[in-house]
């Protein structure tokens, strides 16, 4: 059981990084970014390239990978989001699908089809309460949780966070108060790309990167933000962990002492989770009643 929870934390941290960024963008810009999984892969692949091929140290490679992820997100915003999202909020849905296909092609072109691991080799596992976890995984999980806390602090206790929340509540009202909403949009989109890139690096260190992995990443992040409630970053992060732990429990638990759920149903859990939420609590798990005009 402990092992299953730990497994859930490992998978959940990955999902939380990506869902957190997605929630920011969806909450503030109201934009669906379908290329998020590809952005995660780009962060991961670039880090792999810098570390394994160029031979930089791991921290430098991670910084490099994130810089490239930020740059790609910025370009993506200027070309695929910015010209469209004010016109209609569903337009970027189409443009980012196009973007995801372009990025898929670029990833294949630059990094080939082979699976890539940023740190190949067996992890040095330690036993905690009868469960095994590697040092690398402990670092990854604690780093993710710390990062989320910093994000929380920035959003809730700084002037910058207040501006973001103001823009979330009402774009135009915030602008009339002198907050430069368009600049903030751009910044947040790049931030989400960086967070996704971190997710990709996480994946590349913990498992391995393959070009086809982008879509499942995107889907899980969407499951988390829908279940968490629109624009609710905390909801998204908590739900990312919740879905991951559920996925582990569904397959790993000997239900009623008599049967196991076949592993093939594991991925269905995330999607069932969305459906159940939309049925019983359409506004999401952590939604609060907001006034609207």
């Amino acid at each position: 059981m402990t092992q299953l929870i730990i497994n859930g934390l490992i998978a959940g941290s990955l999902a939380a990084l990506i869902a957190g960024g997605l929630a920011l963008v969806y909450g503030v810009l109201g934009v669906f970014n379908m290329a998020l999984g590809q952005m995660a892969l780009i962060g991961g692949y670039c880090t792999w390239w810098l570390h394994q091929i160029v031979g930089l140290s791991l921290p430098l490679s991670i910084i490099g990978g994130l810089t490239i992820a930020a740059f790609v997100s910025w370009i993506a915003f200027e070309i695929f989001i910015n010209p469209f999202y004010k016109r209609h909020r569903f337009l970027p849905l189409v443009t980012t699908i196009a973007l995801s296909m372009i990025l898929d092609g670029l990833i294949l072109l630059f990094f080939e089809e082979k699976p890539r691991a940023i740190m190949p080799g067996v992890r040095h596992s330690i036993e905690v309460f009868g469960a095994r976890i590697s040092i690398e995984q402990i670092v990854l999980i604690s780093f993710t949780i710390m990062l989320m806390m910093v994000l929380a602090y920035v959003l809730h206790s700084t002037a910058f966070g207040r501006k973001v929340r103001a823009v979330v509540q009402h774009d135009h009202a915030a602008m009339s108060l002198g907050i430069r909403a368009p600049l903030l949009h751009r910044f947040l989109f790049i931030m989400s790309g960086v967070l996704a890139g971190l997710g990709g690096i996480y994946l590349g260190i913990d498992q391995n990167l393959t070009p086809v992995f982008a879509f499942p990443i995107t889907i899980k992040a969407y499951a988390a933000i829908i279940a968490g409630g629109k624009g609710n970053i905390w909801g998204a992060i908590v739900c990312a962990y919740l879905i991951a732990i559920l996925e582990q429990l569904v397959v790993g638990v000997h239900w009623f002492g008599s049967f196991y759920v076949p592993a093939g149903y594991q991925q269905t859990v995330a999607l069932l989770f969305i459906i159940l939420f939309l049925l019983f609590k359409p506004a999401g798990m952590f939604s609060t009643k907001t006034r609207s005009a």
């Binding site: 092992q3 490992i10 790993g252 093939g264 991925q267």
Partner: peptide
């Protein structure tokens, strides 16, 4: 004897059972 969806990368819950 477990069947997983193609592209799955996380087999840890199954490994926990194997243990």
């Amino acid at each position: 004897d477990e069947v997983v969806e193609p592209g799955t990368k996380d087999y840890r819950s199954l490994m926990a059972r194997l243990k």
